[in-house]
């Protein structure tokens, strides 16, 4: 069900670290230069047409999200009415909350390319751009934090053995068997009731807590994967050599072991971004994610009742989420194939 977050089936290349260091030392012009697994993977990716096209689409979406304030300024559209320049809802709406410009009742207008949101009078394109921004911010932040947590705990569990490993493994199992959406359900009301008064604090609190919830239920897959890899890596000669000459433990973990784990980490990152994008929109759709910030999922929820009279209002966020998640997933899949030493194309 939760596609993307499970990364158990991956195999990392072994001994990638040494190869990489050797590679850096040799000049690039040399004919017989050894290629690091990372470089092999990159050259495979560049040849993968699907991956390149999807990466292009993603780049465009990221640019749109980053430039959202400028685009909105330029088009003179506003995602909310708090802006002093923004038109009031009564200027934009007729009785019954139906937009007085653009679809569904009037022809297309360049002032509002995607129309106006019924009932609130906000511009749909502005909402979409800011929703994209929220969605990518949440996904990237959640990915970064969960990778840091997952990798650190995975390294510790794999390297420490004994009690530490047993405790960490239990924690991993515990979170894996905790129903994710129910967890989010249980945590959501706490936040709203604590920060209920002030809209701006609530908005920020929701954002942070959503990222927190996603991380809380998203780090285990990577931690377990890393632990498994470290269990086998720690018996290798280069680690034992480092231990013998008295290299400090943190240095063994992060300088000796970590470079060998690049491939599984990159793959986990590339597959967890789409999962987080989908999760953010999904939770917001259910009303337990973001309620104050613009979110694509929230727009989908409020647009559902309008689907017959005003399909554009529903389809714009739906298509945006679909394109984004599909492109991210396809890129992630290509990255996994590219890093998999078993696929030789």
């Amino acid at each position: 069900m939760s596609s993307g977050l499970s990364v158990d089936e991956l195999d990392g290349p072994e001994g990638g670290g040494e190869a990489e260091r050797m590679d850096d030392a040799t000049p690039k012009t040399s004919q017989v230069a050894g290629r690091s697994p990372t470089r092999i993977a990159l050259s495979r990716l560049a040849k993968d047409k699907v991956a390149v096209v999807c990466a292009g689409i993603l780049l465009l979406l990221v640019l749109l999200a980053v430039m959202a304030p400028f685009i909105c300024d330029w088009l003179n559209i506003y995602p909310d009415q708090k802006d002093p320049d923004a038109p009031t809802p009564s200027e934009m709406l007729e009785t019954g909350g139906i937009p007085s410009f653009g679809p569904p009742n009037y022809p297309f207008t360049w002032d509002h390319p995607l129309g106006i949101e019924p009932a609130s009078g906000r511009d749909n394109l502005a909402l979409l751009l800011y929703g994209l921004r929220t969605s990518l911010t949440v996904a990237v932040a959640a990915t970064v934090v969960s990778v840091v947590v997952g990798v650190t705990l995975g390294l510790l569990a794999g390297y420490a053995k004994g009690v530490v490993d047993a405790v960490l493994s239990f924690v991993i199992d515990f979170f894996l068997s905790f129903p994710f959406i129910l967890g989010a359900l249980a945590l959501a009301p706490i936040i709203t009731s604590r920060f209920g008064g002030d809209q701006d604090t609530l908005r920020r609190a929701e954002l942070y807590s959503l990222i927190g919830i996603l991380v809380l239920f998203g780090w285990m897959g990577l931690a377990r994967l890393i632990r498994g890899q470290v269990l086998s890596l720690r018996e290798r000669e280069f680690v034992q050599a480092a231990q013998v000459i008295g290299v400090p433990t943190w240095q063994i973990l992060f300088k000796e072991l970590l470079p060998n784990l690049v491939a599984p980490i990159v793959v986990a990152v590339s597959l967890s971004v789409p999962a987080y994008v989908a999760a953010e929109a999904g939770l917001s759709y259910l009303g337990i994610g973001l309620t104050e910030s613009p979110s694509l999922g929230k727009t989908v929820d409020s647009a559902t009742v309008w689907f017959q009279r005003y399909p554009l209002y529903l389809w714009a966020p739906v298509v945006t989420i679909m394109i984004m998640v599909i492109a991210l997933n396809l890129v992630g899949d290509s990255i996994r194939d590219a890093f998999d030493p078993k696929t030789r194309r």
């Binding site: 596609s3 929109a281 999904g282 998640v325 997933n329």
Partner: peptide
């Protein structure tokens, strides 16, 4: 492709 589309959509 099917698995890439978010389920709720």
């Amino acid at each position: 492709l099917v698995s890439s589309v978010p389920y709720y959509l």
